[in-house]
Amino acid sequence: MRTDALQNRERLIDVARQALEIEPPPTMAAVARAAGVGQGTLYRHFPTWDDLVLAVHRTDVGELVDMVPELLETHSPRDALRIWLGRLAEYGRIKKGLGSAIHSAMHEQLAGEGYAPVVGAIDALLDAGKADGLYRADVTGEELLLLVGFLWRLDLTEGRDERSARMLDVVLAGLVR
């Protein structure tokens, strides 16, 4: 893909990501305008709204998964896991508003595509802590994902970040050997 086409695609995904936080989401034409491209450019990259939403989801999950090695390189396993789970929670809160933007079949596809990579990322973070003797050996990434699912259910109110941090501390304390 040409550099300008790649930049247009990335800009469209960034604008759509922000648009998905708005209820109801804007039209495709509004996304194109906000990204500073023509509708033809938008439709060449994303023929349908579903294609655009899937691209945002794939990009976001990819970024979440791809950050694991750097976190483990620059932080202790405990801090890396905490930081990553915080990012996962933020992603979940943002995507909570997708309800009107997607239909149930697409929701299943999004969940299916993102589930295994996210569980794999959590397993990698847990394995680093297990190797250091920090975490219990019997906890899996899937179990931890189920436990922290509450974080993206928190309302977007004042004090949410502090509450989320306290709740995450409780979950992470249960991992310690």
Rank of each mutant, 00 (worst) to 15 (best):
I102D: 09
R163V: 13
V15G: 03
Y43Q: 12
E21S: 14
A30Y: 03
R78H: 15
T41L: 00
Y115W: 11
L52Y: 11
K95L: 09
V15F: 03
G97L: 04
H107L: 10
H45V: 01
V148E: 01
L151P: 00
R166E: 15
L156Q: 12
L110K: 06
S100V: 08
T140E: 14
K96Q: 09
I94K: 08
A80R: 07
V176N: 02
P77A: 14
S104A: 12
Q109T: 15
T74H: 14
L168A: 12
G62E: 14
M1H: 07
I102F: 05
T41W: 00
T59R: 13
V176E: 14
V170I: 15
V53K: 15
V176M: 12
L88C: 01
N8S: 15
M28A: 11
Q18P: 05
A121R: 00
K96M: 12
G129H: 13
G174W: 05
G114E: 00
V56I: 01
H45I: 03
S164R: 12
H103V: 06
T59D: 13
Q39S: 08
A131E: 15
S100T: 06
R166S: 14
N8H: 15
A116D: 13
L98Q: 04
D60H: 09
A30F: 02
A89P: 00
E21H: 06
D79V: 13
V37T: 00
R87L: 13
L175E: 05
V119D: 03
P24T: 01
L52N: 04
L175D: 11
V15Q: 04
D161F: 03
R44S: 11
G133E: 08
A16I: 00
G159W: 02
E158S: 09
Y135K: 05
V68G: 03
E21M: 11
W49K: 15
F46T: 01
A111R: 04
H57Q: 14
V56G: 08
P69T: 03
A32I: 08
R160W: 10
D132G: 08
K130A: 09
L126H: 00
D132N: 10
A165L: 07
E21Q: 10
A173E: 14
H75K: 12
G120E: 05
V61I: 15
E108L: 07
L81C: 12
E23L: 10
G38Y: 04
G133P: 06
R136D: 12
H57F: 11
R2E: 10
L72M: 10
A121E: 05
D123G: 04
L42P: 07
F150S: 04
L126N: 00
A131C: 03
T27I: 10
R33I: 08
L54C: 10
A80S: 11
L147R: 07
D50I: 02
V68D: 07
D4N: 10
Y43R: 14
D161N: 11
R87P: 13
